[in-house]
Design a protein around this nucleic acid. Structure first.
Lengths: 207, 207
DNA sequence: CCTTTTTTTAATCAATTGATTAAACTTTTT
DNA sequence: AAAAAGTTTAATCAATTGATTAAAAAAAGG
């Protein structure tokens, strides 16, 4: 459905996304973006007022990409076990398609937490979700190990996303190519799913 | 034991470490470093030939800081259970003292994997350690769940280090200050230790 | 005390940076 | 088709960048 020749604004945003994700804000020049987009470098300032504004737009998009699917999932009316499984699958799929999404967001946030404060507002909504209540209910019913939902969320995110944050390191240390890494990541996911589910849904508690 | 007035070279390296860890290679100017070190900006080129050379030196130091303790531990002749516990404790302590060590290394490696290839050679030595053999033995004896040591190492590292990679995000999302984050991290560590040990050392296998 | 070497400084270089301008080109409107 | 509005371009700006220079200052050697 995508037009063959997209609008100039779209081309700039696409190029900016590519370059910002690869080189970060500091490592990116406006001329880089213009070159990748195949446009005159002044056009960047015509459509977006500055490099900063363009970046904010891209960063916002990336945060949405990161959180909207998760936010949808945590509020879906499905069983806890199913939800946790789907959360992990969704995140893994998202990271396979955007391997450097996490390192980009984490790094820019680290460099400038206050500047990007408004943009990551979405992240705040996850703790307030139905998921949180489901956890508390399950604990009250003795179905899962007593643990705050923040910690569960952190376990899920850490085990999946760190795989991709450390992708270059893993490839170097294990001498893997792209396909080798993907195989390793896919296998690791199975272990992690087992580990987290085993920990939460202990058999002696589920009776 | 530190001298009151250290050598100029030391002051430059200390300043460079501070600034590079906070702003990254691209975000750091040589004048930044000179300012923090309290020296003339030409002195940086006098002691280290270039910004690149100075960075390589710092990056190498940070990799050593990251891996040398772990490398020592994985080769120590202690029981597997004890080793895994000590590995986690050591990493947690290290990250508490250098919260942005991981995001720094991972980010610079992501931006320039080939340039820093030589520096991260240490990471390769971990898979070849006594730890690896211990895991295989334990699996053969049916003491732990059958799983490659790479995956175990990844689980340990991911669950601890991602905590600090995502520190700004966590603080924003949960509205924590420094002390609040440290409390959260300390609590999280206990859960993670339980989870990983429970997963590996399954009761039904230890008989 | 003078010479030699090492360390430090201020001044400056060429290159690159984000951004602006004014003019040229396109498209839309009338 | 003429006018107006919107889009794109080349040329250029001031500021900042990593790096070099030559001279000054300090330390070391005789």
């Amino acid at each position: 459905m995508k037009c063959i020749s997209e609008s100039t604004e779209e081309r700039i945003k696409e190029a900016a996304k590519t370059v910002f994700l690869e080189k970060g804000f500091d490592g990116t020049t406006t001329r880089d973006i213009a070159k990748v987009a195949g446009i005159n470098s002044a056009l960047m300032n015509y459509y977006f007022r500055s490099k900063e504004k363009l970046f904010q737009s891209i960063f916002n998009d990336m945060c949405t990409l990161m959180f909207e699917g998760m936010l949808d999932l945590v509020n879906r009316p499905i069983s806890l076990r199913d939800k946790i499984s789907k959360l992990m699958d969704h995140q893994f799929q998202m990271m396979m398609q955007n391997p450097n999404l996490t390192i980009f967001i984490m790094n820019e946030l680290h460099r400038n937490p206050e500047r990007l404060y408004a943009t990551v507002g979405m992240a705040k909504k996850i703790p307030e979700s139905i998921f949180h209540q489901q956890i508390e209910d399950a604990i009250a019913q003795g179905i899962i190990t007593p643990i705050d939902s923040h910690h569960i969320m952190t376990m899920i995110i850490a085990n999946i996303q760190f795989l991709f944050v450390s992708k270059p390191m893993t490839m170097l240390a294990q001498g893997l190519d792209e396909a080798g890494f993907n195989a390793f990541a896919t296998r690791h996911m199975e272990y992690v799913k087992d580990m987290i589910c085993d920990y939460l849904f202990k058999p002696e508690l589920s009776s």
